[in-house]
């Protein structure tokens, strides 16, 4: 039986169909989850995709953090359900307090869209177990409010406990503190990052590599990792 991975759609979500496609390419079944429906339909994991949920009103991710489906996800995440937040999904995780800190306007004030090199710094999560520690990967980045910010105390804890999952390499695109691109929670089941793994899952449609144009599929391992974690659970 294939794994069921839920992909949430809020009003204003943009990358839900790409995330569903990534789930399918990785070999699982994508289950669409609707913001107003608190039923998670017995999925084995959840992806909160990118976009501009609720028009970024109030703050990015703030209203989505209060949605019925998010309430159910918070409860399930606290019970160990693997949850991946990408871009706006990362903002939703932060606003839901499933991950600490906040995300503010990019330092240079510009929306940035480019292929971004990252270092995978934590592979003890269901979303990163197929990577090698400190592996360098390239996946697309596209955000206007991706500057990670946290109190000194929180930063110290994140670094001390090894909760930084991804760090920007070759230039910090948005002024994120400590070059943080993504985090995991203490338990490891919740992972959030600003760059977009779901846009780097199929040769011909990913970032350029040394081998060929658009052949980069580093993002696929996020999705094969969670399938691997679920199979071995």
């Amino acid at each position: 039986m294939t794994m069921k991975i839920g992909v949430v759609t809020f009003p204003g979500t943009l990358d839900d169909r790409d995330a569903q496609r990534a789930v399918r390419i990785a070999g699982a079944t994508a289950v669409p989850l609707w913001h107003a429906d608190a039923n998670l339909h017995k999925v084995d994991a959840v992806v909160l995709p990118g976009g501009f949920s609720y028009g970024d009103y109030l703050r990015c991710g703030a209203i989505a953090a209060q949605a019925p489906v998010t309430e159910a996800i918070i409860k399930a995440a606290n019970g160990g359900l693997p949850v991946l937040g990408i871009c706006n999904g990362f903002q939703v995780l932060v606003e839901s307090h499933l991950l600490p800190g906040g995300l503010i306007r990019n330092e240079a004030q510009h929306f940035i869209c480019r292929d971004q090199k990252l270092r995978v710094e934590n592979i003890n999560t269901p979303w990163t177990n197929q990577f090698e520690l400190n592996q360098e990967i390239t996946i697309p980045l596209k955000n206007g409010e991706g500057g990670y910010i946290a109190t000194d105390e929180t930063l110290k804890r994140l670094e001390g406990e090894g909760l930084v999952a991804f760090r920007y390499l070759d230039g910090n695109p948005n002024g994120s503190m400590n070059d943080i691109a993504g985090l995991r929670n203490e338990r490891g089941n919740v992972v959030g990052l600003m760059p977009h793994p779901e846009h780097a899952v199929e040769a011909g449609f990913g970032p350029d590599t040394n081998i060929a144009m658009r052949s980069g599929i580093d993002g696929l391992k996020f999705f094969t990792s969670v399938i691997n974690a679920l199979v071995n659970a």
Binding site: L58, R59, A62, E95, G101, I104, I149
Partner: peptide, 8 residues
């Protein structure tokens, strides 16, 4: 809790 984010 909602209208502001204490981090920012």
């Amino acid at each position: 809790s909602f209208l502001s984010n204490a981090v920012i």
